[in-house]
Amino acid sequence: MKVIFLKDVKGKGKKGEIKNVADGYARNFLFKQGLAIEATPANLKELE
């Protein structure tokens, strides 16, 4: 799953980066902790 990092995550990505991560990792950790959001077309447009 592609995500947009909202904060730096050690060993995974830095704020503003778009990366592929495991679905479970994204849903169970990154999204719940507010560290990333899903890289949907709408979210990508907001990032620009």
Rank of each mutant, 00 (worst) to 15 (best):
M1F: 08
L35H: 04
K7T: 11
A42H: 12
K10W: 14
N28H: 12
K14P: 01
G24N: 14
L35D: 03
N28A: 10
Q33G: 07
K45Q: 12
P41E: 14
K19R: 12
N20K: 12
A42W: 07
A36I: 06
K7W: 09
F5I: 01
G16S: 04
K15L: 09
D23A: 15
Q33P: 01
M1L: 14
A36Q: 00
L44D: 04
N20M: 15
L30H: 00
L44E: 05
V9G: 01
G34H: 10
E17A: 06
Y25Q: 05
I37E: 05
I37G: 02
M1Q: 05
G34D: 05
D8A: 07
N20Y: 15
Q33V: 09
A39F: 12
K2A: 11
K10I: 13
N43R: 09
K14R: 13
M1E: 03
L30K: 01
K32N: 07
Q33A: 11
E38Q: 10
L30S: 00
G34I: 03
K10D: 12
G16T: 02
M1K: 05
I37D: 02
Q33L: 15
K7A: 14
M1T: 12
G11H: 07
L6K: 03
N43M: 12
K10V: 13
V21Y: 05
D23M: 14
G16R: 02
D23V: 15
R27S: 06
G11A: 05
I18V: 13
G24Q: 12
K14V: 09
K7P: 00
K15D: 01
I37K: 08
E46P: 06
A39V: 08
V3A: 02
F31H: 00
L30V: 01
P41Y: 11
E46Q: 14
M1V: 13
N28S: 10
L35V: 05
V9S: 02
E46Y: 13
N20A: 11
E48G: 13
T40G: 04
N20Q: 13
A39M: 07
E38K: 08
I37Y: 05
N43Y: 08
I18Q: 05
A22F: 10
D8S: 09
G34Q: 08
L47I: 11
E46V: 13
R27T: 08
A26M: 08
A36H: 00
Y25G: 04
E48V: 12
A22N: 14
F5M: 04
L35S: 04
E17V: 03
N20L: 15
K10E: 15
R27D: 03
V9L: 06
V21W: 02
A39P: 02
N20H: 14
M1G: 03
F5S: 00
I37L: 10
G11R: 05
K7R: 13
K32V: 14
L44M: 11
L44Q: 06
F5V: 00
A26R: 02
L6W: 02
A36G: 04
V3P: 00
E38R: 09
K14I: 09
I4N: 01
E38W: 07
A39W: 13
K15R: 12
L6G: 01
F5W: 03
E38G: 03
V3S: 00
E17I: 03
E38F: 05
A26F: 14
K14A: 09
L30Q: 00
M1Y: 08
E46H: 13
L6Q: 03
I37W: 06
K32I: 13
I4Y: 10
K7H: 12
L44H: 05
K45W: 10
K12R: 12
F31K: 03
F29P: 02
D8I: 03
D8P: 04
A22E: 14
L47N: 08
V9E: 01
K19M: 10
G13S: 03
E46F: 14
F31N: 01
V9H: 02
L47Q: 09
N20P: 07
R27P: 02
K45R: 13
G11T: 05
L47T: 07
G11M: 04
G24T: 14
E48D: 11
K15H: 05
G16V: 01
F31Q: 02
E48A: 14
E17M: 06
I37N: 02
L35K: 04
L6P: 00
I4T: 02
A22I: 09
E38A: 11
L44A: 05
K15V: 09
K15P: 04
K2H: 09
E48P: 09
L35E: 03
N43S: 09
G24E: 15
K15I: 09
K7I: 10
L44I: 14
D23Y: 15
N43A: 12
D8Y: 08
L35Y: 09
D8E: 07
G24K: 13
G34A: 07
Y25S: 05
K7E: 09
V3N: 00
T40Y: 05
K32M: 11
A22M: 10
A26Q: 06
K2V: 13
F5Y: 06
D23S: 14
K10H: 12
N20S: 14
A36L: 02
N43L: 12
E48I: 14
F29I: 12
A36P: 01
V3M: 03
G16W: 10
V9M: 04
N43T: 10
V21P: 00
L47K: 07
F29A: 06
K2N: 10
L44K: 06
I18Y: 03
K2Y: 15
P41I: 11
N43P: 04
Y25N: 05
D8M: 04
G16D: 05
I37R: 07
E17Q: 11
F5N: 00
A22P: 14
V3T: 01
G34F: 08
G24D: 15
G16H: 07
L44P: 03
V3L: 04
K19Y: 07
K32R: 11
F29W: 13
G24W: 15
K12M: 15
Y25V: 07
V9R: 02
E17W: 04
K12S: 14
N28F: 12
V9P: 01
G16I: 00
G13K: 00
K32H: 08
F29Q: 08
G34S: 06
K45E: 11
E17H: 04
I37V: 13
E46D: 11
L6R: 03
K2T: 14
M1D: 03
Y25H: 06
D8L: 04
L30M: 03
F31R: 01
P41T: 10
A22Y: 10
A39N: 02
F31I: 13
V21K: 01
K19A: 10
L44N: 05
E48M: 15
K32E: 09
T40H: 06
D8H: 08
F29L: 08
G16N: 07
